[in-house]
Write a protein that binds this DNA or RNA. Sequence first.
DNA 1: GAATTAATTAATGTATACATTAATGAGAAA
DNA 2: TTTCTCATTAATGTATACATTAATTAATTC
Lengths: 224, 224
Amino acid sequence: MLQDEPFKSNTRRAVHDLRELIFSGELEAGSDHLESELAERLSMSRTPVREATLMLEAQGLLEVRPRKGVRILALSADDMDEIYEVLTELESLAAALAADAQYCKKDLNTLAKSIDDMEVAVTNEDRVAWAKADGDFHHELVRLSKNSRIMAIVSNFNDQVRRARMTTLHIRPLPKKSNEEHRALFEAIVSGDAKAARDIHWNHRTSARKMLTELLNGHGLKRI
Amino acid sequence: MLQDEPFKSNTRRAVHDLRELIFSGELEAGSDHLESELAERLSMSRTPVREATLMLEAQGLLEVRPRKGVRILALSADDMDEIYEVLTELESLAAALAADAQYCKKDLNTLAKSIDDMEVAVTNEDRVAWAKADGDFHHELVRLSKNSRIMAIVSNFNDQVRRARMTTLHIRPLPKKSNEEHRALFEAIVSGDAKAARDIHWNHRTSARKMLTELLNGHGLKRI
DNA sequence: GAATTAATTAATGTATACATTAATGAGAAA
DNA sequence: TTTCTCATTAATGTATACATTAATTAATTC
């Protein structure tokens, strides 16, 4: 599956590989790792690994703790709450901006497609496919805002909660009614109703957030 | 003025010093600088300078352009617009959260103090003092939200627009009526009216934003 | 003379040796 | 035993030499 991509530099590869290791859980949340360990693991010297860890620290995926190694991000329920608070707000803004932008239906094809994909996935009870389509939907929504800063922040926070989402994906209820909200949002964007778009998405996100926190608390997942 | 702080490492010092050089304008917006130049300037080897530039790139203050040196951030009017769009949204959220948090008047002393300071500064037509107090006000407002992610993003974006603010500070009209809005926001927070707090601050920020963009465009400041 | 290619150069990228320092543990004094 | 000091150690922090490579210039061919 993995074809060895040509990386511009070892630092770039280190960033990429460490992200993969973190997302896959091979580097467990909360675990500590020495620079030299990671360097050996990635078959390179400490220099590019150090540079990579500093970048990943800035992205909030790990914490560099001098003499104790880097610690992989472990989110508490409060952290999740903070992140979802920001995500909710910025995505709702994105929805409003998308509505204001007066897109024609053709420009919204990608968005429509992912709604359909979610529909199919829910029918098939295929959670992985649903997660993919849902991710695409949110990504496209934010892209339509045309604000690169919103895109960057949202993408960054999505990285931070990626593992948590993976975990909850299989214990959460199937999102059967959620697509009604997606379609309502779509209509609001088509018709240029920014206020409605914002509110619909805000409510959508807020209820998802509530569900998630309760789920995590219910399962006693303190740090993830 | 500058007492040499004890830095944990040269990398830390490089981050600090480069930030100062950028904020002060000694490293001009849009200018390019080789790692070796900067290293000599800061009296250290390339290694900590490289690490510092990677961190500052992640903070959006410069761009590492292999073989062309690092380029200091230069904001276009569109960039300013994007940033202020996010700042407006997140600060308004912070205002709503602060109102929800049910602070007693004593907890809001710092906020009240900076409003008074702004009042005095405007009376004295002391723009620098006003900017300081205004900065304090916004910082405290965000702190009251108790959401560390909002704090981090807002502080980051404030860094990015710092030079632009300095520039406009002396060509903008004195903010005479702006403190009425601050006091109204304060009251909304005291009385726990989240909706009002959010709206007041949103309008406050939105009009400031409009003023700023017009000012920049009017003075033909394309990149700053 | 224009275009292509090869040599040079100047910068970054990387490994490594070494310096520094926080943490650990051993040993001495109370 | 407890505490303090000091040596040890194990990690990061830093400088530097060298590898690599994009960009530039010179050279060659058409």
